[in-house]
């Protein structure tokens, strides 16, 4: 519903087994909100979302996104934070699948001559004496 698999980008969907397991392991502080979001979704759809016809699903999804509030935001957050650390997804985005430490990253120094016009300015802080 949120992130489908894509052959174009060679990525799994958020319903991929490995990602889904990761989601289930990371409900933590959001468990209650997510339970609330899922029962809200079932109420809007009039039954389990997975059992709905494709057309009906699109309408239910749209309605849910409009009225889901904080519980929905919590659900989406957990999905996104598990999806966007999956190795396959990282690879497709051209990102290294590793923690930042200890290798770090390179950031270019940049052209400090850009500061020349500012260096040329007179002191601009307000005098107090």
């Amino acid at each position: 519903m949120i992130i489908p698999a894509s052959a174009v980008y060679d990525v799994p969907g958020a319903d991929d087994e490995k990602i889904f397991d990761d989601i289930l392991r990371n409900l933590e502080r959001d468990r209650d909100d997510i339970r609330r979001a899922l029962s809200h979704l079932a109420a809007i759809g009039g039954g389990a979302f997975a059992d709905l016809e494709a057309d009906h699903r699109a309408d239910v999804t749209k309605a849910f996104r409009e009225v889901g509030g904080a519980p929905l935001a919590a659900l989406v957050r957990v999905v996104l934070l598990c999806y966007y650390r999956d190795d396959r997804v990282m690879q497709s985005l051209g990102q290294e699948a590793r923690p930042p430490f200890p290798k770090g990253h390179v950031v270019e120094q940049g052209d400090w001559s850009l500061l020349d016009p500012v260096r040329a300015r007179k002191p601009m802080y307000r005098r107090v004496d």
């Binding site: 996104l80 934070l81 966007y84 650390r85 990102q95």
Partner: peptide, 28 residues
Amino acid sequence: AIMEAIISSNAGRLPWGDDHHSVYRKLL
């Protein structure tokens, strides 16, 4: 990557469904 997805999703900039991937790649 995650913060971009969450902020843009909350702001309604990042769609659900098939367009998700192409839009996300223009944001990240």
